[in-house]
Nucleic acid binder design. Structure first.
Lengths: 153, 153
DNA sequence: CATATACCCATTGACGCCCATATAATCCCA
DNA sequence: TGGGATTATATGGGCGTCAATGGGTATATG
């Protein structure tokens, strides 16, 4: 499986280390399996992360925005200037930078949420609450969620 | 046969393992025959499952949504973070995650119901009851059922 | 020199792999 | 075509490996 899926809650130890879930590590290309990038989510108080390869994809997405719009500057500033690369140790752990932990209110535990081509890191309670709210919003339009899950190609 | 059909009731052993019915295993592509995805059914207290190929389809569809829209986040959160991949061992068994067992009230036995391109896993009694109710609902609209069953292509 | 970070080692529990058996389905040949 | 032989499926259990976690120590960096 080459997608970030499922959710995991891992502990942050005294040294600030936390294990990147094993299934997430396996999504990273074998070449750069010891490095990920992290940045503040634009829309939620969470951290987003992915392999370094995904940077190009993000750049493309932002490039597709209207160059002269306010959004363009806002997104490129918010994302690119805030990106932090982190190393993963031999045991599969990494350090969440203090600034990002503050942004996401993360203290002793980190909840990892698969998002397909990237993942999010939440303070566990906030993350679960966010999942519920997302689902509630979507269920208001049952048809679209069903379609997404059951449609045949 | 490349569809999930028929129903089976299998036991869950001490370790939590349960056999995926052989005919279901044969529906999975030989390439990814050792992995399936599971998620909570939207409309019923049951688990739905299918091969990983379907997940990639879903990923593609979500990826085509506007990256910066709220829908994008809602879909990827509700789907990717809720999906769980499980491995199938050499004997054709897999583990049903605790959270999903709770959701479906599954304890010692699991009932598998073929649903064509996917399948459902139920607590046996609930599953059979659901089948009856489904059929009863259909019979109330005999006309449409007749049409469905007798129509020639 | 002080703090932060990487590396190494250890522990625990969960999971995957292997082997075994009983029942059911299929085959195969006289 | 009957019936024994072979294969497949569902199920049980032992055991090694890996993931998550904790901690000691070396190293780097300012």
């Amino acid at each position: 499986m080459d997608l970030f899926v499922s959710k995991y809650i891992n502990k942050i130890d005294k040294k600030g280390r936390v294990s990147l879930p094993s299934s997430f590590r396996n999504v990273l290309p074998k070449a750069n399996r010891n490095e990920i990038i992290l940045y503040k989510s634009i829309k939620t108080p969470s951290i987003e992360g992915c392999g370094v390869g995904r940077l190009k994809e993000i750049a493309k997405r932002i490039n597709n925005l209207d160059f002269f719009s306010e959004d363009y500057d806002d997104f490129s500033t918010s994302i690119f200037s805030e990106i932090i690369t982190t190393n993963i140790d031999k045991e599969g752990r990494f350090l969440i930078p203090e600034e990002l932990k503050l942004y996401a209110s993360i203290k002793s535990e980190a909840a990892f949420f698969g998002q397909g081509h990237y993942f999010q890191i939440w303070e566990p309670k906030k993350g679960l609450k966010n999942t519920e709210e997302s689902r509630r919003r979507l269920l208001k339009e049952k048809k679209s969620l069903r379609m997404m899950l059951t449609q045949q190609k």
